[in-house]
Every structure is written in structure tokens, then in C-alpha cells.
């Protein structure tokens, strides 16, 4: 036992074929989604080119019409990457529309006050849910489900009817167009893109972002590695709460009213976008850029169906469901391969 021989090279202990390497690449799902988007877009171009599908504005409308979904999905990406789930997203959005409309219309508060207030309430709610999840070790599914009901209930406490917003500053903001050559983006779309860029930076270039991945990879290990895993979890739900509230503000701007039933079930759209964007529901693997493509794919399905004209809008749901199944199967195949 005392003789030593040449040290083994562990690097070649797993020489993988090219195909296996591609399959194991964590960026693959994002690339698949991006490719799917391009294919769908090209199909739209060839089918509806005479109806103006090729116009730049049609493309930019994808961002405008889905800005709130993108923001909500970015928040959900944080939660899902950390291995959790947030079901309260849709209710927070609905609540924020009510809360904002009520403050602006009924209380006459100026927007500069209302915006930080709404964001603060959303973040605080997320923080509290994260706190309960971490400190009482309750399934995030249960806690955020409670959040879902709670926020919906609060909407009705504010008012049973919808509140239209006639405030001039809101409508001028909603109508602002940021010109981009021949086409334009709305303020909401720009905010969403900024949020996306910020999320990308946070997830890839800050210690907090990397902790989110670590906790999602293996929570117990993260704890033993000396990472503040509890704080990370709480922060993740805070981020999601904040993003949901921001999405609520964008939704208010987009629709210019508060309604207790706004955005019902939108948490599921957000989760679907995240999963289609290649993030693993088990946590620890995925990219926020994928979420952008997830949202764009969902948005594109909607506008394709609009262009088709004769199809019922329920087809959007059916197409989403089919895609979701397909992507979960892809994920399954990938994780199975990675294990061996």
C-alpha cells in the first residue's frame, strides 16, 4: 500500500461524446425554446404576411402586451430556481390593481406615492410568506396558496366592484410611446426589459444570485456549506412579491382599472413561462433569459391565434398545455441523462 503510481487524471474519467455533452449542457433548454420561438415566428410570417404580421410593431406588441407577465415570470424564476413555488402571483397582481385604483381614484393620492406604496406592500407580503416558509418549515405550496386566497379576499375588502381609473397622469403614462425607428414600445415594456436585465445581472453576477442556485441545487448542502440558506429563501419570495406588485402596476397601466378578478390564475401563466423557458421545477437549473423566451412563446401563440381569426381563444390554453407537457418531458429526459 505504500507504492504510488502515476496519478489518475480525473478529467478523462468522464470523457463524454459530443452528443452527450450537448445534451448535458444546461443552456440547451433555453436554446430549444428560442428556436421554437423563431420557428413559430417564421411560420407566422409565411402564413400571415399579407395581413401585416411582418411589421415591426407586431413583434414589439409581444413585449407591450406581455410586459406584466414577463415581470411576474421573472419573479417566479427566482422562486423556482430556489426550488420553491409561488402561487400568490396572480392574486398579488389583482390586489395591486385594486389597491392602486383605490388609492388614486378614491383617496386621491399622487402616483409618486402610490407606486412605492404598492411595491412595498407586495414585497412585504412576499417577505412574510418567505419567513413563514423558512421558519416554520411549511411547504411553499401551502403558504403561497394561503397567500393566493388572502390577497384575493383583500381585493374584495377594498371593493366588490371594479374601479376605473380616470386619473390624467395614469392615462398619459399609459399612452406614452417610446419610439424605436418605425415602431414603438410602451413604458410597461421598457420597465419589463429593465427588470429582466436586472434579474440577469443579479442571478449571474451577485453572491445572492448564486446562492439562489445553490439552495435550489441542494438546500441541505447549502446550509452545511455555510450559506445563509434561510435568508436566501426569504429574499427569493420577497423578490417575487415585489415583481408581482410591479407586474400589478404594469397591468393597471395596461388596463386602466382595478378589478377584484383581474389576473386570476396568472400565477400559472408565469410558472408555465418559466418552465417552457427551460427552468427545472425542481430548482437549481435554468436561466432568466429562458423565461423571456417562455413569455414570448406564450404571447406569440396568442397573437397567432388572433391572426388566424376563426380560432377560439381557448386554443391558447390548449397550446400552452401541450407545450408545457412537451417541455417537462424534455426536462425529464435531460435530468435522467445527467444522472448517469
Amino acid at each position: 500500500m505504500s507504492t504510488t503510481t502515476a496519478r489518475p487524471k480525473a478529467a478523462d474519467s468522464h470523457p463524454t461524446s459530443k452528443a452527450a455533452r450537448v445534451l448535458a449542457d444546461r443552456r440547451l433548454p433555453v436554446m430549444v425554446t428560442a428556436a421554437l420561438f423563431l420557428v413559430m415566428y417564421a411560420a407566422g410570417l409565411s402564413r400571415y404576411q399579407n395581413y401585416g404580421f411582418g411589421e415591426a410593431q407586431v413583434f414589439l406588441n409581444l413585449f407591450i402586451d406581455n410586459s406584466y407577465l414577463l415581470v411576474a415570470a421573472v419573479g417566479a424564476t427566482f422562486v423556482i430556481l430556489s426550488g420553491g413555488i409561488d402561487l400568490s402571483v396572480g392574486s398579488v397582481i389583482g390586489f395591486t390593481t385594486m389597491f392602486t385604483a383605490w388609492l388614486v381614484e378614491r383617496q386621491g393620492l399622487p402616483l409618486v406615492l402610490v407606486i412605492p406604496l404598492a411595491l412595498g406592500v407586495g414585497a412585504l407580503g412576499g417577505f412574510l410568506m418567505g419567513y413563514v416558509i423558512h421558519n416554520f418549515e411549511i411547504q411553499p405550496f401551502i403558504v403561497t396558496l394561503a397567500g393566493l386566497f388572502l390577497y384575493r379576499g383583500l381585493c374584495l375588502v377594498i371593493s366588490k366592484e371594479s374601479i376605473a381609473i380616470g386619473d390624467a397622469s395614469v392615462s398619459s403614462m399609459a399612452q406614452t410611446q417610446v419610439s424605436l425607428g418605425g415602431a414603438f414600445l410602451s413604458i410597461g415594456a421598457i420597465v419589463a426589459l429593465v427588470v429582466l436585465a436586472a434579474a440577469f445581472y443579479v442571478l449571474h453576477y451577485t453572491r445572492f444570485g448564486r446562492r439562489v442556485y445553490a439552495v435550489g441545487g441542494n438546500e441541505q448542502s447549502a446550509l452545511l456549506m455555510g450559506l445563509p440558506q434561510g435568508g436566501t429563501k426569504i429574499s427569493v419570495y420577497t423578490v417575487s412579491g415585489f415583481c408581482s406588485a410591479l407586474a400589478g402596476l404594469l397591468f393597471t397601466l395596461y388596463i386602466q382599472s382595478g378589478d377584484p378578478l383581474h389576473a386570476t390564475g396568472m400565477e400559472l401563466d408565469a410558472i408555465a413561462a418559466v418552465v417552457i423557458g427551460g427552468t427545472l421545477l425542481t430548482g437549481g437549473s435554468g436561466f432568466v433569459i429562458g423565461t423571456l423566451f417562455g413569455v414570448l412563446v406564450l404571447g406569440l401563440i396568442k397573437s397567432l391565434i388572433q391572426f388566424e381569426g376563426t380560432l377560439s381563444s381557448w386554443w391558447t390554453k390548449i397550446a400552452t398545455g401541450v407545450l408545457l407537457c412537451a417541455f417537462i418531458l424534455i426536462q425529464r429526459a435531460m435530468t435522467a441523462r445527467r444522472k448517469t
Binding site: 445581472y201 449571474h204 453576477y205 451577485t206 453572491r207 448564486r210 446562492r211 442556485y213 445553490a214 435550489g216 441545487g217 441542494n218 441541505q220 448542502s221 447549502a222 452545511l224 456549506m225 455555510g226 450559506l227 437549481g284 437549473s285
Partner: peptide, 30 residues
């Protein structure tokens, strides 16, 4: 401490596993 079972994050790169929690930063950026 190195605990008995390997307690690292399988989804992160080897380099990150070594440094996570104390990554070198420049202007607050990893």
C-alpha cells in the same frame, strides 16, 4: 468543515462549489 457525506451543490460548477459564499468580486460584481 467537510461533513461526512459530500455536501456540495451538484448543479453548480466545481469552481463555484469551491468559492460560493466568498466569490471574488470586483465593484460588487462576481
Amino acid at each position: 468543515t467537510v461533513y461526512q457525506e459530500v455536501n456540495l451543490c451538484p448543479n453548480l460548477s466545481v469552481a463555484e462549489n469551491i468559492f460560493i459564499g466568498r466569490e471574488p468580486t470586483r465593484f460588487g460584481r462576481i
